[in-house]
Nucleic acid binder design. Structure first.
Lengths: 248, 248
DNA sequence: CGGGAGGTTGACAATCGTCAATCAGAGTGG
DNA sequence: CCACTCTGATTGACGATTGTCAACCTCCCG
């Protein structure tokens, strides 16, 4: 299952914001791992459970969710190809949220102790993972502001912009045309809205001409700048590599 | 200004979830730093600006905020004595949010390069800071769920519970009686509500008997368990040290 | 062809926001 | 000691964004 370049994705991810030397890269590629195909809706970890592995998402999309008292769900982050999931599980005891697949895809699972070992033996790899955690934190902060202080239209436009940029960085699709791998209910779970209101809001964005949709999932952004304005979107918080044009 | 035990607070903070040996502790205490008194509302870093230091909060309270298009403010985290601010500024280029004092207090400022150096020279210290970042991420996720999926009453009860526990861990006040260092407007900025609605909600909590207030800022929690239920509060996400009773 | 998931729409309800006035307490200067 | 002022808390009336309920539609798949 494991061809030699599977963890190349992880090398690429960790090198985005920090140079890694040949030894660092070799150490990452030498990490033990098992590849696993995960079906849609399959969950990795559930809130409250302990875990033993961290993962690199090789294909497909994954989300992290929390459930509140009434049973409502909040999606706290969305992950795409190349991203690392569950780094926190290598260091914290119990999961404070669940991780599950949004679509069928593959993951490379790396044992907790190997993550810990490499972070000490190869300090720059450790630092790169720390930076990854910090960037993730920055995205969380933006999401708090998104659900806390923006109205429905702005929230959804913001999500569409974020997706657009992150998909490009992940090498999936263009800025202006992409397939959103989420149902409107899931978009609601990510933005703190009900599916009905998500529907109305998306239709309104379409009526305004900010987006077009070939079908409910396939988004075309007519004027990137206008959508970014509508979504109060400034890519700063994504801390993207400098060679990526920011689009605003 | 710098007596030898100032950074003791940092040692304690970083040792919460990971044992540090004598050399690690000594290395932390040997970090260069300058102590600075910061008045209320004084800001450390503003969104978009670069920085050169990370800080340990020695006394007082600080918050991190983001501003959205309409000028509304979202508080994304609250910090108290002993906590580290701006670790992300040691590793990321530009600030994606602002940090400012909620009350007058003191901070120890440590140069960015010394933070980076110690994280490599003393891998366990580096790991402890990484863990700190991960816990912070967990709190961010909880806040996303809080503002995204809970109603006003639950959000505020949740905030009151979080404060109660974190104050105790910081060694400030008891679980059931503490002074909330925030105005109702600031509580609104933290929970995504307007000050008017915060006021109504707090009064309702008081009318229900869940809390009592000697004055607007001084909170007494009558029945911790009931308030935790009202706030859908489970301390799991705080990843508190095991020797701290969880209170639920 | 039937079933199911997801999308769309309308009518109505409710939580929460807006606007605006008043009140309470702390600090200041006379 | 007292008016003055400022910040923050409190309250009421009203409005609007968003949620709820329920129906129907559309597409995909076995």
């Amino acid at each position: 299952m494991s061809d030699f370049s599977t963890l190349e994705l992880m090398v690429r991810k960790l090198s985005y914001r920090l140079k890694l030397d040949a030894d660092d890269r070799a150490a990452i590629l030498a990490l033990p791992f098992t590849v696993k195909t995960m079906e849609r809706h399959r969950s990795f970890v559930r809130e409250g459970e302990p875990t033993t592995h961290s993962c690199v998402l090789l294909s497909g999309y994954a989300i992290r969710t929390k459930i509140v008292a009434g049973g409502e769900r909040q999606i706290v982050s969305i992950h795409m190809k190349g991203e690392m999931l569950d780094l926190q599980n290598s260091l914290l005891e119990t999961a404070d949220h669940s991780v599950q697949m949004l679509t069928t895809g593959k993951v490379a699972m790396i044992p907790r102790e190997d993550i810990l070992r490499i972070s000490v033996e190869r300090p720059m790899v450790g630092r790169a993972m720390w930076i990854d955690t910090l960037v993730e934190g920055s995205i969380f902060r933006e999401w708090i502001a998104n659900v806390g202080r923006r109205d429905a239209r702005t929230r959804i436009a913001h999500l569409l912009c974020e997706f657009s940029l992150r998909l490009r960085v992940a090498g999936l699709g263009r800025d202006t045309d992409y397939e959103l791998p989420m149902t409107q209910e899931q978009i609601g779970d990510a933005t703190g809205l009900t599916p009905v209101h998500v529907n109305r809001t998306i239709k309104a964005l379409e009526a305004e001409g900010l987006i077009k949709r070939a079908n409910p999932r396939f988004v075309h952004i007519g004027d990137w700048r206008k959508l970014a304005d509508a979504g109060d979107f400034d890519s700063n918080y994504l801390h993207m590599p400098k060679d990526e044009p920011a689009l605003r």
